[in-house]
Structure formats: structure tokens, C-alpha cells
Design a protein around this nucleic acid. Structure first.
Length: 587
RNA sequence: GACCCCGUAGCUCAGCAGGAUAGAGCAACAGAUUCCUAAUCUGUAGGUCACAGGUUCAAAUCCUGUCGGGGUCGCCA
């Protein structure tokens, strides 16, 4: 199906072309002045100027030209030369019917589907996730869903941070606590036990313990670095421990992600590409890209056109170790070889912009992937009211697990207060609370423009009124509920006839889905879709408050409104599912 | 110091491929429930779009500068 904006744009573009103008002047968009018109075209001012014509005269000519189109009721010339377009009720009815019948609820498909890899989440083994991880997880997961919805072939990879100093900390701290473990015996090289020697609680305790010691004692830090080097060199016991740490951590991570409805196709990590690094380094040396500088192997990725200083890409550091430059580039090698992507998107904190610039340049220079096929989808930091990265009152980080728990508790409390779900069973109440909490958290993050920092406000994340996830659930559940009642009463939906202003507004809202998705996709900005879904829910709520639907006496109007509700619900659920939000049947 | 991002209502933020009277949510105030879920709806009030220049028929939006806030700048990731 084609949305009205696209249809009208074509009509106006043809009109401009017929008068010998460039078609771009014919671009039509939703009206800024809904009381005057449904759509507007502002091209006459610019087009007239290019010919020395009077804008209003040209506008009148264009208005005359488009008269034949059956979606257009009338076109008015206003102000200096605006064209105000009002569409027919029949056209709106058609659009609503089309949304109702469309299995994508009016959302389209990208012109050219691609195979896209999303690198997001980026959780670290043993380090608990904090609020910053919420952003990568939720934005990345939503973009994956959005791209899939529009037809792209998507693979989401968690890209675990399992190769750094934290592994050394864990190993050395475990060694201090349990020196007799088989993993530390130099005379033993496997096979090692299947059962992990630690629990997630152990990891949660060992890491901060070691980290604190290392900060205070350089020698202790040195020991961890040595352990990392040994592990990277292939120490069998350490490797076996690494495997255990990863497995134990991933199990725990999955719980937090599942709460948020975040899913990954791959759980690969830095350690998975370690074995590719030597070959990659050889290749870089052969190509003359890697050079020895200050004891380290680097790639000079700077360009003359650079306005800023571009530090070198660090392949191997002066101690002979590899850092995240090497693992990230090796990950590109791995992905290109195994998945053959058209594009790779990295959903990572904006502060890593320079790092990715370097990785992309290096990957391009190494002939792995063209620089313009790789994008850093950066996001802003989650700040406190002081403008600094958010800290709890105690000054610590807010763990994601704690945030999840707080949202859930608020949801449960609120369900009790509102007297909702009173007659539901325990299980259903718990499920509803979980869905409400997820909706609140995801929407509170996704509604922000991705790239800017935002101030974290716990109340906003656990609030259920106004522009929130729960508001959207509420709207969807209301529709489900009234459709259910109508069905029970034997009222069937029928032909849609759009009459009043609130109905018109609602259908115009429905019609904006495709372009919201398209823009959201093009800009990699979930908040555009959030805006759309929210305004759709608002438009429905306004109709709901002002008109009876299932209780309407006139059978035709009732059937029409019921059908309209079905269309709205379909699109609402489609939009929400992209945002990773699921509405219960009742709440 | 260089480079990047930001500055819009009391608060948190949209809008920025220029377009008419700058929009939401929260907070404030006034209303709405004989009937489909009030986690709702309707309305009122609230803005020198940081500041100063420039481009343009038209600037919150583009350009320049200033001020203020945040970030990044070779071996932790």
C-alpha cells in the first residue's frame, strides 16, 4: 500500500514537472496547521523565485493542475504561496482499510534490503551491567527489530568483553582464594572439569575485590596483566577458567536481557577472535600497513584532510599484548569471512567515536570492508542532574539488575493501587507487571534522541503516566478489551467510513507509519518511531474519550469504528513490537 | 591547545535537508466518569529558541564569532 504523503507528493511532483519545474518542489508533508489542512506543499515560493514568477500565481496554477486526483478534496493557496491540501473522506477510509488488511500494518519495506550485522550490548564478563548498558541493549535490539521489519537480513551480536584486564583480575583473585584448584597446577593441562569452579556471585565478589586491590597496589595490577598475557598466550588452565567465567556470566546476563526483551543471535566475544589475530597481524605487515613505532606495531590511519589529530591504530602494544583495536579488527575479519555482511553497525557509547573511526579506516585499508559500510551508532551518556555520568546517591553505579527490579516493584505497586487486575491470578499479575516494567524502561530510553546525553531520572523510568511505555500498553489493552466485548455482543467490524475530526486525525496518524519507520531506519533513530506510536495512541485515546465505539447504537458507525480500532491495534502492536514492547490481553 | 556534541516553557525533552501562530510529557490551574479500563480525556497559563552579527522573500533551523555545559585526543576497554 502507498501512504498519502507519498501519493500526494507524486501528484504534486508531476504537476510541477508539467509546468517545466524540477519535481523536488512538489514534496508534500503533513500540515503544520491541522485546523487549515491535512497536508501542505511549500514548493511554490522557491520554484516561483527561480523563474521570477509571483508565488501565489504559481500556487494557483499547481492547485488547478492537481484537481483531478480523487484523494484530493480541495487545495487552497494561503499566505505567500503555501498550498493547503485537504483529502477526501473516501481516501482516508481507503487508507484505514488498507492498514487493516496489510500484514505490516502500513509499514513498508526498504528499497534495497541488506545483510546487516549489529554489534551491540557489549557486556563485560564479571562486571555487572549498569544503566549505560541499558542504552546499547535497548537501542541495538530495537534497531535490529526495525531493520528486520523493513526487510533487512539482520544478525545481532553481543560482542562480549571477555578478553581484557578483568579476566586477569579474576584469575589472580581466584588463585589467591583457592590456590589448590586444578586450573593452577602447572603439571596439568586438561581435560578440566565441566562444572564451573565459581558461581555468578563469586564473580561478582572477586572482580571488585581484585579491582580495588589493583588500584591500590601496582604490583597487584601487574600480576593481573601478567595473567592476561599468559592467558592470551594459551595457558591451558587459564583458558579453561576463561571458558567457565564466560559461561557463568552469560547465564546471568541473559536474565537481565530477557527482562528487557533484548535478544541476540550471537553471543560471540573478543576471545572468539583471538586465534585470528596472528594471521591478521602477518597480513597487515605483509601489506606494509603495520609498522613498528615506539616498540608497538601500529597502523597510521591519519589523513591529510583530518582536522583533528588522529592517533595511530594500535595493533600490538609495546608489551607485545593486544587490546581492543586488535580484537575489533579481528572481529571484522571473522564477520566478513563467516557472515559476508553488506553493512556493520556498532551501537556503542558516543565517546568511542574516535576508536571506531580508527577501526573503520584500518578495516578499509586492510581491504576487509569499505569504510562507508561500517557505522558507529553512538549514543549519549546517561547523566545525573549534575551533568556528570549518573551515580546513585551512595556515589556508586546503578546496576541494570537493580533498575530492572525497581521498575518491576513500581509496576506491581501501581497495579495494586490502581485496583487493576484485581481478579487476575498471581501468575498473570506477575506477567503483566513484568510487561509494564519492560515497556516503561525501554520507552523511557528509546524516546530520547540517540546521540545526545540525557538526564537519568528514576521517577521517569518508573512512571506510568503521560508519554510512557505503560501509556502505550494501556491504549493497546483498551482496544483489545473493547474488541473482545464487541465480539461477545455479536458486533462485527465492517466497512470503514471516516466522518468526524477525531477520526480523520486518527487515520492521518495511521498514514504516517511508513514514513516514521523509514526515517527511523534512515537515521538509525528509534525516537522517531516512539513519537509516531505515542501520537497514534493519543489520537486513539481522544477518539475513545469522545465517542462510543462498541456501544455505538448506529450499526454502520459501530462496525466502522470497530474496524478502525482493529487497524489501529494492528499498527500499534506492530510499532510496539519493533520497540520490543508487548501488550498483554488485559491489565 | 585541537576537534566533536549540546544550550528551546519552572523541569525533562522534540522540532533543525529554512516556511504560516515554536510542540510534547511532567509540575501548576480549571473541568470531564448514568455507558466500551480515569495508567484516560478536554481546556488555561507558561518561551528574547544562550548571545551578537550575516545569508534569505522567509532563520529555532544555514554561516561566522562570543559565552556557558559535556566529551575525546597511542599502548585499560
Amino acid at each position: 500500500m502507498m501512504d498519502l504523503v507519498t501519493h500526494l507528493s507524486k501528484v504534486f511532483e508531476q504537476a510541477f514537472e508539467a509546468e517545466g519545474f524540477e519535481s523536488r518542489w512538489g514534496a508534500v508533508r503533513r500540515s503544520d496547521r491541522p485546523e487549515l489542512a491535512d497536508f501542505q506543499c511549500n514548493g511554490c515560493m522557491g520554484a516561483a523565485k527561480s523563474r521570477g514568477l509571483v508565488p501565489r500565481d504559481l500556487a494557483a496554477m499547481i492547485a488547478e493542475k492537481v484537481q483531478g486526483d480523487d484523494a484530493i478534496e480541495r487545495v487552497d493557496v494561503a499566505g505567500p504561496g503555501f498550498l493547503n491540501i485537504k483529502v477526501t473522506s473516501a481516501a482516508l477510509s481507503r487508507q484505514a482499510e488498507a492498514v487493516r488488511a496489510d500484514d505490516k500494518a502500513g509499514g513498508g519495506t526498504v528499497a534495497k534490503p541488506e545483510k546487516v550485522i549489529f554489534d551491540f550490548g557489549g557486556p563485560n564478563v564479571a562486571k555487572p551491567m549498569h544503566v549505560g548498558h541499558l542504552r546499547s541493549a535497548v537501542i541495538g535490539d530495537t534497531l535490529c527489530r526495525l531493520f528486520r521489519f523493513l526487510g533487512d537480513d539482520v544478525t545481532g551480536d553481543a560482542h562480549l568483553g571477555d578478553w581484557g584486564l578483568q579476566m586477569g583480575h579474576l584469575i589472580t583473585e581466584l588463585l589467591a582464594e583457592q590456590p589448590d584448584l586444578i586450573y593452577f597446577r602447572p603439571d596439568f593441562s586438561g581435560p578440566y572439569p565441566e562444572e564451573p569452579p565459581v558461581t555468578i556471585e563469586d564473580l561478582g565478589r572477586l572482580y571488585p575485590q581484585a579491582s580495588a586491590k589493583a588500584k591500590a597496589d601496582p604490583a597487584r595490577n601487574e600480576a593481573s596483566q601478567l595473567a592476561v598475557a599468559e592467558m592470551q598466550a594459551g595457558h591451558p588452565g587459564y583458558r579453561a577458567l576463561l571458558r567457565h567465567f564466560i559461561n557463568v556470566s552469560v547465564e546471568a546476563l541473559k536474565i537481565d536481557y530477557a527482562f528487557l526483551g533484548v535478544e541476540f543471535d550471537l553471543w560471540k566475544g573478543e576471545s572468539d577472535v583471538d586465534q585470528l589475530i596472528p594471521g591478521m597481524v602477518e597480513d597487515l605487515k605483509e601489506k606494509g600497513l603495520a609498522k613498528l613505532d615506539d616498540g608497538a606495531w601500529i597502523i597510521d590511519v591519519a589523513r591529510e584532510s583530518d582536522k583533528k589529530e588522529m592517533p595511530p591504530f594500535m595493533v600490538i602494544n609495546s608489551r607485545g599484548g593486544t587490546g581492543y583495536h586488535a580484537t575489533d579488527l579481528a572481529t571484522v575479519v571473522d564477520r566478513v569471512e563467516t557472515l559476508h555482511p553488506d553493512r556493520m553497525l556498532y551501537v556503542v557509547d558516543q565517546r568511542q567515536a574516535l576508536h571506531f573511526e580508527q577501526v573503520f579506516r584500518a578495516a578499509d585499508m586492510a581491504g576487509l570492508m569499505a569504510e562507508d559500510r561500517m557505522e558507529h551508532i553512538g549514543f549519549g551518556t546517561v547523566n545525573g542532574t549534575d551533568g556528570k555520568p549518573f551515580k546513585t546517591r551512595e556515589g556508586g553505579i546503578l546496576r541494570l539488575a537493580d533498575l530492572n527490579r525497581m521498575a518491576l516493584e513500581e509496576a506491581e505497586k501501581r497495579i495494586g493501587e490502581a485496583g487493576l487486575s484485581g481478579d487476575f491470578g498471581e501468575e498473570e499479575r506477575a506477567r503483566i507487571a513484568a510487561l509494564v516494567a519492560r515497556a516503561a524502561l525501554r520507552f523511557a530510553d528509546l524516546m530520547n534522541v540517540r546521540t545526545t546525553n540525557y538526564v537519568f531520572d528514576l521517577e521517569r523510568f518508573t512512571s506510568f503516566e503521560g508519554k510512557t511505555g505503560p501509556y502505550l500498553l494501556y491504549a493497546a489493552v483498551r482496544i483489545k478489551s473493547l474488541l473482545r466485548r464487541a465480539k461477545e455482543a455479536g458486533h462485527a467490524p465492517g466497512k470503514i467510513r471516516i466522518e468526524g475530526d477525531t477520526e480523520r486525525a486518527l487515520v492521518l496518524g495511521l498514514d504516517g507509519f511508513a514514513s516514521a519507520l523509514e526515517q527511523s531506519h534512515a537515521k538509525r533513530q528509534p525516537h522517531i518511531l516512539c513519537e509516531h506510536v505515542y501520537s497514534l495512541a493519543q489520537a486513539f485515546s481522544a477518539l475513545y474519550a469522545a465517542n462510543p465505539i462498541a456501544n455505538e447504537d448506529d450499526a454502520d458507525i459501530r462496525a466502522s469504528r470497530l474496524a478502525l480500532c482493529e487497524a489501529v491495534l494492528k499498527q500499534l502492536e506492530a510499532g510496539l513490537s519493533i520497540l520490543g514492547i508487548e501488550a498483554p490481553e488485559r491489565m
